[in-house]
Structures are given as C-alpha cells and as structure tokens.
Design a protein around this nucleic acid. Sequence first.
DNA 1: TCCTGACATTGATCCGGATCAACTGGATGA
DNA 2: TCATCCAGTTGATCCGGATCAATGTCAGGA
Lengths: 249, 249
Amino acid sequence: MSFQTAAAAASIKCGDCPIRHRAVCSRCETDELRELDGLKYYRTIEAGQTIVWSGDEMDFVASLVSGIATLSQTMEDGRTQMVGLLLPSDFVGRPGRAEAAYDVTATTDVTLCCFRKKPFEALMMRTPHIGQRLLEMTLDELDAAREWMLLLGRKTAREKIATLLAIIIRRDASLHLQADGGALEFDLPLTREAMADYLGLTLETVSRQISALKREGVIELRGKRHIVIPDLDRLIEETGDDSDGGVLT
Amino acid sequence: MSFQTAAAAASIKCGDCPIRHRAVCSRCETDELRELDGLKYYRTIEAGQTIVWSGDEMDFVASLVSGIATLSQTMEDGRTQMVGLLLPSDFVGRPGRAEAAYDVTATTDVTLCCFRKKPFEALMMRTPHIGQRLLEMTLDELDAAREWMLLLGRKTAREKIATLLAIIIRRDASLHLQADGGALEFDLPLTREAMADYLGLTLETVSRQISALKREGVIELRGKRHIVIPDLDRLIEETGDDSDGGVLT
DNA sequence: TCCTGACATTGATCCGGATCAACTGGATGA
DNA sequence: TCATCCAGTTGATCCGGATCAATGTCAGGA
C-alpha cells in the first residue's frame, strides 16, 4: 500500500495557501496559479458549522486549505449518510452546477480558499489542463465512492472500522507520525457519531468495535481520539481487502 | 420526477449504432461522430459472460449499444457488490487508465461499440467538448454512486427494492410501456441474485420483499420477471426518498 | 470546587435480514 | 413423457447490529 498522499506532495503553493490546489495540474500550474491568485478569497468556518446545505445556491468553488469537512445526505426522517470526507487540498463544488447536491459540514475549524464560479469556469475554458485535471480528480472520487459502496453493502462492522482507520492513515499523512518501532499514531478527526454516519452504523456499534479492536491489541487508545497502530499489517488484515493493498493503492 | 432518459433522447445516431454516443456532446456531434465512425468496431457478448475482469489490460473504450451489463467488485471470500448498472448508451472504460478497475459482466446479450483507446484519447485531446462531456458524465455517475451509498448505508430492504425499481423505470424508458390507466409495466433486466448484489442483500431477502410488495398491491407480478406498477406514486413513497422526486430528479 | 454538557462506553434486549433448507414451477432436452 | 436444471419462493432459525438505557470521562465555566 502506498502512503504517498496529497498532503505529502504539498510542496507547490499558490500564493499564501499552504496547500497545493489539485484542480490545477502540475504541467500548467505556474501560469494558471498566477491567474487564480487574482480570483481567490479566503473563508473560515468554525467546527460544527455547515458550510453549504444541499440545495443552496453555490456561486463558488474552493480548495480546502486546513481542517476537515464532510459531505453528507439526509433523509426526511433524519437518517444520514456521509458520502465524502474532505481533507486539505481537496476540491469543493462543481463547475457547471448551480446548486449544492450535499450538505458540507466542518468537523473541525476549516479554512477554504474560494474562487467565484464564473471566473473559475472561464479560466477552465481557456485552460484545457484544468478540465482534464478535474476529470482525473472526479474519476478518483468515483473510484473512492465505489470502494465505499463495497464497504457499505458487504463489510462487517469490524471490517468497516478497520477500513476507515486505514483510509484515514492513507489519505492524510499529516495526521499521523511514524513513531519508533514501526508504530503509527494519529488523532481521529471524527467523532464516533460522524464515523457511524460514514460507515452506515450506529455510534454504539462504532464504540463497541473500537473497544474490541483495542482489547485484541490491533489498536491502542490514548484518550478517546488518539490512536496508536502497533502493526499496520495487522490492521489491514482486518479490513477484508486484499492484503497487498489492492484497491487501496 | 422526470422520466426523460438517455434512451428517449436517442434520436442522434452515429453510423449504424441505434444509440446516441453520449461521450460526444450535441454541440460537436456532427463532425466528431464522422471521425468516430472511422475508429469504431462492434463486439457482441453473450448473456452471463464477463466482458473484462478487474485488473485486465483494457485497450478500448466503448458505448453500450444494446443489452445490459453490470460493474462489480468481489472480495477474496466471494462477497460481491455491484457498483454500476450499464444500460444502452452508457459509456464503458476510462481514458487515461490502462487497467479495468471492476468486473464488467453482461447480464443479457450485449453489443458494444468499441473505440481503440489510443485514437480515442487523441480525438479527445483535439476536441475539448468530448472531455467536457466526459466530465459531465463522470459527475453524474458520481452523484449516482453517492445516492447509492445512502441506499446501502441507511435504507431498509423494502426501501432498497422500491428504489431499485424506481431507478430502473427512470433510467430506461425503453424497458417499460405506459399502459392504459396510468399503469406502467416492464421486464426486470436482473435476476434476484443480481438485484441482491446491487442492493447489498441476499437473494432470499430480495424475493421476500418483492413478495411483500406484491401482497400489498404496490406491484403486480406476471411471471417472475414482468412487473406491473399500478401506481407509481405509491411505489415512490416506498423508496424513502423525498416524494417530490428530490435527488432522483 | 462543583456543575454542566458533550462525547464516549457498556449493558440488556430486540429485530431485520442472513443463513440453512425444503420445495415449486417452468424451460430444455434426451 | 419424464428427468434435469435453474431461478425463484417460502419456512425455520440464527445472529449481528440496532435500540433503549444507564454510566463514565473530561473540559470549560460559574
């Protein structure tokens, strides 16, 4: 499994942003980032606040600069399902669509680097590489969504938890620190309830399964959120995925 | 809810194909379809055959001309989850990716209109509209996948069945005929097992829920596959979705 | 210092869907 | 005409995760 992540590759910057704007491909970034610099503005959102509601008019697209946000859908009776997890450098919004299709909620304090949609779309038209890059990113998200469908439809609660931990580790290298002896540790960026909404479980089941993994030594807990993985391979075995990394790679 | 579908809009043809190639946008189709005509070849696959296996080298992309195919993922122990349903005019394959990420299986006899990947990609580079159209199609698929995540994570077995029926009705107008009195009928293009793999259920549960819907008059069965919907609104109520169509629209 | 409220854990019980198993009804073909 | 073979149905039972409820933990504030 490869732990090369967007955050790890964040060496190329746009103005003040500490992240790389992935909507801009590396081949064209020098020129286009200069143009983007003129368009952008920053927006900060507190933990717990909803950034946009499904159905809202959305006149901007954005890159997530810092913090963590979620995409979710809610049924009339309140059942909710998270459909995406946004980490720094991820893209929010959709050129060519006026209304938000999902609720976007900040789970930690969040900074967005926003671009008004109209000029961004114009830039996209002038710059085929950006559209191409967006297509690549969308295809990656589609793969991730389908991977998640397998998880939701066919995995057990224990496998779901292990998979979520593996995905968090893989996607955000900045969250974890490689300790000595191969152990890996990081802070969970989600509450038990948010994890449950992501995994299609209840928060009690999430809590019980985390306790079970702890009891069996697959993970260690320091406090409620800080997780230590003594043996990553052991965790990966619990995910139910191909042990060689397979689709996770 | 809108029942305008791809099949209903299939008036614009490419050579012999009775479908519209949706990867080509309507603005540019005259010129580019002429070019595509030179590239394409047909391929037929029997019901039950797998067209490509996950991991296979794939040197073509294609439009589905007739029949029905599925995209699915399988875990080592055999648990499988369908992640996509391909109907006529849908696009198969991925420019810029060498290996298939999913198993593609024909559930009925299938005809593909294939394009070798290299020349198709070259055409894409010359023709920004095609890339744009592909981005739109991919975004639509992403929305469908996320809709499906809500279904897999949070809906009951009964809601899942009702939703699948509603989606089949919505997506392929050619499958159903509006009978007199507002009733709607069509043949199910999937076995109970395929439905189960799509919905994250077992085939027994699918069968039981279909029987229950029949018993309660939400649907009628003529034979095992032919379904009559006496009252579409009644069915939609069972899906758990917003009654105004909501995200299904 | 204690109170409060948010988050998390744990226990007891319930239930929806899985599992195991028997059976039915067509279609196919010897 | 009858054996065979699926796809589908139905029944009995089981079990994983949901639900309901009580308790624990800890940070922040009066």
